[in-house]
């Protein structure tokens, strides 16, 4: 009934990427998505099921120069409780706090959330506005090859990324925010967490004397992928956040997104919420 022929739990990164070489591998990390999807038959497990839990190189949250490195296996709970993240990346803590439930936060990993590439993925919006990069490993020849890719270019569709079948996500790198950095995240829903976003919004930038620069805006659940909003960012860049600007930017945001109707909301409502919440967040940022 299944083509699954092999279970493999490597203990080093080299073993893992070596195993990935033939591409016919399903990767298991936290399992919060793969388990139910495969049980329900929505995802077919390939020739090899590779459990990456025992690879030490994929764990840990560390400060490396001017970057915070979060290992792919870091769970949502580990991230939201880690002192480095709490100190430097409160917007990521905020998003983690709205992620599913305690049980799922305890199991789900940042690597898994990135590779799932859900348009509504809760950690992805803050990672996008924090200019995060994805770190990938593979073994094209006999040697471990590692490279990074901006997260903003990583997603190509629902559940689809630019990661090749032979690559493993080993972590994310997030530049340390500079002085004056502000960031906000908002997930629209009726519950604190156990909820798929109707929409989510992340805004970040550097606020100096009431003027926002390096503006980053990302929206969740309004497109096939979590997405940066170029027009909205452009409209914000270098602007003083007064009421008129905020209204103008919110209107641009509403026009920029192209959401769909689904069981959670209509496109019309999503656009309205992008407008209203963008306005609300920018007002908060203005007061920061």
């Amino acid at each position: 009934m299944t083509e699954l022929k092999h279970y493999f739990a490597p203990t080093s990164l080299d073993q893992a990427v070596e195993c990935l070489k033939d591409g016919d591998v399903t990767i298991l990390a936290g399992g919060t998505d793969l388990t139910p999807q495969s049980q329900a038959g929505r995802v077919k497990i390939k020739h090899t099921l590779m459990n990456i839990r025992h690879i030490p190189q994929l764990t840990g949250i560390t400060l490396e120069g001017r970057e915070i490195h979060i290992g792919a296996l870091a769970t949502i709970t580990e991230i939201m409780e880690h002192p480095l993240v709490r100190q430097h990346l409160p917007v990521l803590v905020e998003a983690c706090d709205h992620f599913a439930s305690d049980q799922i936060r305890n199991a789900g990993t940042i690597g898994g959330n990135i590779c799932n590439a859900s348009p509504a993925g809760d950690t992805l919006i803050p990672l996008l506005v924090l200019d995060a990069s994805v770190e990938l490993a593979s073994m094209p020849e006999a040697k471990l090859y590692r490279h990074t890719m901006p997260l903003s270019t990583f997603f190509v569709g629902p559940g689809k990324t630019r990661k090749s079948l032979c690559e493993l996500v080993t972590g994310v790198r997030i530049p340390l925010p500079e002085q004056g950095h502000v960031a906000r995240f908002f997930k629209l829903g009726t519950r604190p967490a156990l909820d798929i976003s109707t929409i989510s919004i992340g805004v970040a930038g550097t606020l100096r004397d009431g003027v926002l620069s390096n503006a980053r805006v990302a929206f969740g659940a309004v497109a096939p992928t979590p997405t940066r909003a170029a027009q909205t960012e452009q409209a914000l860049e270098g602007q003083r956040l007064d009421a008129a600007t905020i209204e103008k930017v919110a209107a641009i945001a509403r026009d920029e997104v192209k959401p769909i109707d689904d069981v959670r909301a209509t496109a019309w409502y999503r656009k309205e919420m992008i407008h209203n919440i963008t306005k609300r967040i920018l007002s908060h940022v203005a007061q920061a």
Partner: peptide, 16 residues
């Protein structure tokens, strides 16, 4: 030491 949904966990992942 942490709580998990056992329905979201592969049995093989209990190893060790």
């Amino acid at each position: 030491g942490v709580s998990l949904n056992s329905c979201l966990m592969f049995a093989v992942d209990c190893d060790g």
